[in-house]
Write a protein that binds this DNA or RNA. Structure first.
Ligand SMILES: NC(=O)c1ccc[n+]([C@@H]2O[C@H](COP(=O)([O-])OP(=O)(O)OC[C@H]3O[C@@H](n4cnc5c(N)ncnc54)[C@H](O)[C@@H]3O)[C@@H](O)[C@H]2O)c1
Ligand SMILES: NC(=O)c1ccc[n+]([C@@H]2O[C@H](COP(=O)([O-])OP(=O)(O)OC[C@H]3O[C@@H](n4cnc5c(N)ncnc54)[C@H](O)[C@@H]3O)[C@@H](O)[C@H]2O)c1
Lengths: 239, 239
DNA sequence: CCGACTTTGTGCGCGTATTCACAAGGGTTA
DNA sequence: TAACCCTTGTGAATACGCGCACAAAGTCGG
């Protein structure tokens, strides 16, 4: 069997498509909402509506976890919550460190949406002497020099980077060298990491730019109506 | 020429794939970096490396904007910056309102990464009497009751929602009713809006959950090694 | 116990995205 | 001018994701 065939087989048997994984948390959120209202059973149609997706897509997504629905009835909310949580790894606790405790880091430190999903913030680190020692959301900010110790001692497995862009790669390198293989990056830079490390980024500036693009479309295309590719543009490069 | 042919031509000539649009801001960031270091010309290989993508993908992306490269040489940095900015609509100013000035809203209000791309925060709104009137990043927080006036008077075209989840849909409805067609949502809810409105969401909790999924994979699959789809699972639903 | 009804799980076709690989095009040098 | 080198732009193959539509499978009333 060629390596390629092997990879295909692995995908088919255990691999859950990335697109599906990205939606599972949304389903989970919708399910928790239903749970609070005491709903016991839900159809794919209802759940899909609550999650804002097509019902066929929802069913296909869930089918990747196994067959947890009952035909003619729907899905048992509680059981589905358990299965999705389990698949996402939320049945265990994840230890998180937030690095860079500025405006954004502070907001993150106090955010309840983390703890409620099994993410425990076990460290706040910063380089600024004025910030180190401050108590934020019940935790004392530690010095970045202690990064490696903190990661090792507390078993940090996810690092959240909220430093300025210029510092992000350096901090990332240290974090990775300490054995962390999951990074959530808020700094507007592309981090380079070894293959085994997962980096996800949150970039609000990019989101705004995408909105601006579409907004401009609605308003009638880019300024100066000539289509890109037209031959008669002028050299007005200088800002 | 029939309307349909016209539409097809427009698509072919002007329609830029969503996946491409989402990457243009990344290229732009990389280009600004090069610009600061005085680079005049860049090859697709170099730029792709800086942006963290495959070079063929980069070239194909850029080809959607027209042919702005020179074979044998590469792309002129300054010119490319201009073309991408123009395509994204960053050559004009966008007026933004931030709604919900709590932990996150505050961080956003003071964030420099917005202004530097032509996004001007023209309003901060909140429902809390204790927050209304406060000065944050040089702006006075206004009462949410004035939402419609603020949007109309200042020509707000993008709304940033940073309210609690429970309030988001209501606020969103009001914003949309006021004519805003672009929304950036930080609240962990699926917003329902008319077709012509674009909503983009930023959800850090989802990103963490995706990281957790992959982290669990690395550690050897979900707890209790049985592959999903196995027939012998037990009814251990109760938490 | 049966037949009507409901909802799941999925085969299939379609469109989009990604990547490879190379011909075409432009610069550069002798 | 011509030969050579470098890099773009894109055709073609492959992979991926989406959603329709329907058979299979279960429920429920009679
Ligand atoms: N504030 C926002 O709304 C927002 C939005 C989008 C992106 N971002 C990005 O998030 C990051 C943080 O933003 P912010 O507004 O909190 O900035 P900030 O300047 O308020 O905070 C950055 C913090 O990082 C600390 N720091 C600097 N170098 C460090 C190092 N080497 N190790 C550890 N800590 C270090 C600083 O002392 C500071 O406290 C930036 O990269 C920014 O571009 C912020
Ligand atoms: N803080 C974070 O790091 C973080 C991370 C991810 C997501 N979020 C989400 O972002 C949102 C805001 O988070 P936060 O931490 O800033 O919460 P917060 O409670 O600190 O702030 C919410 C603000 O919204 C205001 N508000 C409430 N109802 C309103 C209404 N109807 N109109 C206008 N304003 C209203 C409140 O007065 C408050 O000031 C929440 O939905 C949260 O889930 C926050």
């Amino acid at each position: 069997m060629t390596p390629r065939q092997n990879r295909n087989r692995d995908r088919a048997e255990r691999g859950i498509p990335d697109a599906t994984v990205a939606r599972l948390p949304v389903y989970l959120r919708a399910l928790h909402g239903l749970q609070e209202r005491g709903t016991v059973t839900v159809s794919s149609e209802e759940l899909a509506a609550a999650a804002g997706v097509n019902s066929a897509k929802l069913r296909k997504d869930l089918s990747h976890l196994g067959s947890y629905g009952t035909r003619g009835v729907g899905y048992e909310v509680e059981y589905l919550v358990y299965q999705i949580s389990r698949e996402l790894g939320l049945t265990q606790d994840w230890v998180v460190a937030i690095i860079g405790v500025g405006n954004l880091g502070r907001a993150l430190a106090g955010y309840g949406g983390f703890a409620s999903r099994g993410f425990r913030v076990a460290g706040l680190l910063d380089a600024d002497e004025g910030i180190v020692g401050q108590e934020i959301s019940g935790m004392v900010v530690e010095h970045i020099d202690r990064l490696e110790e903190v990661i090792a001692e507390r078993g940090v497995s996810i690092a959240v980077l909220a430093t300025p862009a210029a510092a992000a790669q350096t901090v990332c390198d240290r974090v990775v060298a300490s054995g962390v293989t999951s990074v959530l990056n808020f700094a507007p830079v592309v981090l380079s990491v070894p293959d085994e490390v997962d980096v996800r980024k949150v970039d609000m500036s990019i989101e705004l730019q995408i909105l601006a693009f579409h907004e401009q479309r609605k308003a009638g295309g880019p300024l100066g109506e000539d289509p890109p590719g037209a031959a008669q543009y002028v050299e007005t490069v200088e800002a």
